[in-house]
Simulated scan of single mutants.
Amino acid sequence: MSCIWEWVPNFSLGIIKLGDQIASYIDTLHLLDDDDEDDGHATDLVGYKIPNVEIYIYVDNESIISITSYEEFIYKDKNIIGMSVNQLSEILGCEPSEIGTSVLFDNGEIQTPFEYFHLGLQLWVSNEIVASASIMNGLLES
């Protein structure tokens, strides 16, 4: 299935909408269970992977709560994945709400989370370049 993975803040990534029931996407997108999400922390979240693209959907009580992409996250006709940190404020129109603590991953890569709460956006940045982007409903955060 070919899809344009356009991000709508606090709402959707491509055809996938936050808050929708996952059942409506399992067959349509041929979702795979994402069993790689074992980070040693107890969680009730269930993960799904979209085949042939590095996009993951996370579900709680059958409801979509976040979507993460490592490939394509289109906003204002530009892909945020691979964008430099210097370009972010221009395209997003704001600075991050919070820049988190950097994390050293098993592969030796150091990544830093950039949070944009009002946009429902979390970016992980490595060497000043966006490595992944997640949409979650920031309007629920208070």
Rank of each mutant, 00 (worst) to 15 (best):
S89V: 08
F73I: 13
G100H: 01
E109D: 12
I80Q: 03
D106A: 10
D106R: 10
E98K: 15
C94W: 02
F105L: 15
V103H: 08
C94F: 13
F73V: 09
I67N: 07
E62Y: 07
Q111H: 07
K76H: 11
I64W: 02
E98P: 11
L104N: 07
E62L: 12
E95Q: 14
P96M: 06
I74N: 15
S89R: 07
L92Q: 06
S63L: 13
I80Y: 05
L92W: 04
E98R: 14
E71W: 09
C94P: 10
S66V: 08
I110W: 00
I65Y: 10
K76M: 12
I74P: 13
I64M: 06
P113T: 03
F73G: 07
P113E: 04
N79W: 01
D77Y: 13
S63I: 14
Q87F: 03
L88Y: 02
E98D: 15
G108E: 01
P96N: 12
T68C: 09
Y75I: 01
P113K: 02
S84V: 08
E62S: 15
Q87V: 00
E71G: 11
G82E: 06
E109M: 06
S97Y: 14
K78G: 09
Y75V: 06
I81G: 07
N107K: 00
S63M: 12
M83S: 00
I74M: 15
I80K: 03
E71L: 12
G82A: 02
V103P: 05
V85Q: 03
E62D: 14
S97A: 10
I80E: 04
I74F: 08
G108H: 04
E109S: 12
Q87R: 04
S102E: 01
D77N: 15
G82W: 02
S84C: 12
L88P: 01
S66Y: 10
Y75E: 08
E90Y: 00
G82Q: 04
S97N: 07
E72V: 11
Q87S: 10
I64T: 06
I110E: 00
S89M: 08
T101L: 11
E98L: 15
E72N: 04
I81D: 05
Q87L: 10
P96V: 05
F73P: 04
G108R: 00
I91A: 02
E72G: 04
E90W: 01
S97I: 09
D77I: 13
S69D: 10
Y75P: 11
G100W: 07
E109G: 01
N107T: 02
V85C: 07
S84N: 13
I99Y: 09
E72S: 10
S84P: 12
E95W: 04
